[in-house]
Nucleic acid binder design. Structure first.
Length: 200
DNA sequence: CATCGGATGGACT
DNA sequence: GTCCATCCGATGG
């Protein structure tokens, strides 16, 4: 495995939709207990802040949980959904509370350790084809809340997206968000099977 | 304090 | 398709 070079802050200061699209094919890296875990991102969703009814910062809602969304781009926004931890990266300028949810990946390296973290055998397709599965495989927890995702131990790195075919769809699991439910702000690699079940 | 609900996943019918 | 584990923030009394 060649050296992983972290994406820098300017990457995350682009528009949130642009970040969501460009993260497809990029690598997510976690250096954990001396092992480097790497996955290739296959699915993301953009959450566009104060006007997006599906976004936790809709209407400038600001709580202890959402506070990090108001900080600078590149920060880690983790939150718990039922029994699971979900990973987001903050985008845009400080004070503009937008983020990209990392929803799925293909395991690249550190696979034995990821299998131990995930528990039970899984096919490569279902290994991390969901946001809760992904954080479990990568060992990401609420302890990572606020971490700057351009620095070890948890960061993004340039990957291979030459085979990626970016497909936009509606976001998954959004309810009660009116017209915001229909925006095509979910992005998948149409050539990967390691994505959530729904396809257009 | 009690209650509710959700950007989920896994087991099961 | 259904059920539910088990969490935190939000809301109301």
């Amino acid at each position: 495995m060649k050296q992983q070079k972290a994406l820098d802050l300017s990457f995350f200061e682009q528009s949130t939709i642009e970040v969501a699209k460009r993260l497809i094919g990029m690598h997510l890296v976690h250096e954990l207990d001396g092992v480097t875990l790497v996955g290739r991102i296959t699915e993301t969703e953009a959450y566009l802040g104060v006007l997006d009814r599906a976004c936790h910062s809709y209407g400038r809602r600001r709580t202890k949980r959402t506070a990090i969304l108001y900080e600078e781009a590149g920060r880690c926004y983790t939150y718990t959904m039922h029994t699971h931890c979900l990973l987001n990266v903050v985008c845009e300028q400080k004070g503009q509370p937008e983020a990209v949810l990392i929803r799925a990946m293909e395991p690249i390296s550190g696979i034995e350790e990821m299998e131990r973290l995930r528990g039970k055998p899984h096919t490569s397709r279902e290994f991390a084809n969901g946001p809760g599965k992904l954080t479990k495989a990568m060992g990401i927890t609420m302890a990572d809340y606020g971490h700057l995702l351009t620095e070890p131990p948890l960061y993004f790195a340039k990957g291979d997206n030459t085979d990626a075919s970016i497909v936009a769809t509606k976001r998954i699991g959004i309810k009660g968000a009116g017209s915001c439910s229909h925006h095509p702000w979910r992005f998948i690699d149409g050539n990967s099977r390691a994505v959530s079940a729904y396809r257009p």
